[in-house]
Design a binder for these strands. Structure first.
Lengths: 218, 218
DNA sequence: CTTTTACGTTACGACTCGTAACGTAACAGA
DNA sequence: TCTGTTACGTTACGAGTCGTAACGTAAAAG
């Protein structure tokens, strides 16, 4: 989300869109190589073949630039809806883990730290980084509730917090969560939240066997 | 954990312990007022009535100093053992929340960020900040397992991860967890992990009524 | 009285930041 | 074609913080 004041009026020399691309691309490269803390705008400009002032014409600082850069990586498809609560949760979850794993944990932590003091930046961080996963898993959860799969007294937001927190926490302190660990955690939560956990599990297993029968070795 | 090489040998002028105290105290004050990011060693020294070099004689940098400073706040008593799994978990948990709440969330986040690259510092951070709560809740969990209150297939470490992650996550992104929210989360988890959740709940409620009968208004 | 270390003061070089100044390049409208 | 506006790259500035070194002085041990 770079400034567009300049390009808004038709007058004057237009921004070179190639520079925008080169800067975002260089930023992603350097984030992977150096992390957020050691990333300097000087080096971003150098690698993009341009200059520091060119960056400041587009973004007011490092945080907004990086936010735009990683947003291009966190774009993620919608969660599935197969009617199998357990499968859908696992799946909608794995989609994010895959996206998160493409970004160094330190980057998210440091970026948030710099966004947090500014209300608008913080909102954009949350909207870009944490909300997508929350929304996708939330949608899947809502469908489960609509189907009557969850206990009526189950707290939707609390389940979201627990599961979302686990991802973030592990990303920061214990390495990224594996798909298997995520699946296991979901099962633990659902065991308490489900109306009839055994039924959900049976349904899931049945679909899995059916899938294997169709695609497995003959 | 300041350097003690100088004081180890009996020779030479001894460190002034008053300076140690003043520095740690000034650090805590400034952490509360400015947070970690804006805290400068210059200002710490100034407020402690000493000089920057005096800090570097004791700590190699900002992170180790702050780590020592907040360690003095995170010292926390042992968890209770009343035989009531639900009560003990709630209680051992609240003890920590109380300690965590005395520290700005940003401080923990920023401090970890700076400790993470250095293996030894990182280890000390984990040992100082996250392990105490993990251990205390873990001990309570182990007693619950020993009592046979939990399912035999319940994953102790996973439960710890889920609950610990929630605290950290909320501290960073959604404000500190309230006691009530923590209690509710524990109940959600235990509903799935318990051998007989209803029995645990009954036990807890019984003790609570007994407590109120003894201490309530006549 | 010598040795050793801590103390406060001052100052240094290094790094990054955000911005300003300049001449040049590219576009819109008269 | 000419004028106004904005982007571009280059260069450079002041500000802030870092980690460290140099000094003379103070306080302990032997």
């Amino acid at each position: 989300m770079s400034k567009e004041r300049g390009s808004a009026t038709g007058a004057g020399r237009p921004r070179d869109p190639e520079i925008d691309r080169a800067l975002l691309s260089a930023t992603l490269e350097l984030l992977d190589e150096l992390g957020y803390t050691k990333l300097t705008l000087e080096e971003v400009a150098r690698r993009a073949g341009t200059s520091r002032p060119a960056i400041y014409r587009r973004w007011p600082g490092r945080a907004p630039l990086v936010l735009d850069a990683i947003a291009t990586r966190l774009d993620v498809p919608s969660p599935p809806d197969t009617g199998c609560t357990l499968c859908d949760l696992d799946e909608s979850f794995n989609v994010f883990l895959a996206a998160y794993r493409t970004i160094r944990p330190e980057v998210l932590n440091a970026l948030y730290l710099e966004c947090e003091p500014d209300a608008e930046l913080k909102a954009r961080y949350l909207e870009t980084v944490v909300e997508p996963s929350r929304r996708a898993v939330g949608r899947t959860l809502d469908r489960a509730i609509a189907r009557g799969d969850l206990r009526t007294d189950a707290d939707r937001d609390q389940l979201l917090d627990l599961i979302g927190a686990l991802v973030h926490h592990r990303a920061l302190f214990g390495g990224h969560l594996t798909d298997a660990e995520a699946q296991s955690a979901i099962e633990t939560l659902l065991r308490g939240a489900a109306q009839d956990y055994q039924a959900l599990l049976d349904h899931s297993l049945a679909l899995e066997q059916e899938h294997q029968a169709r695609h497995g070795a003959p």
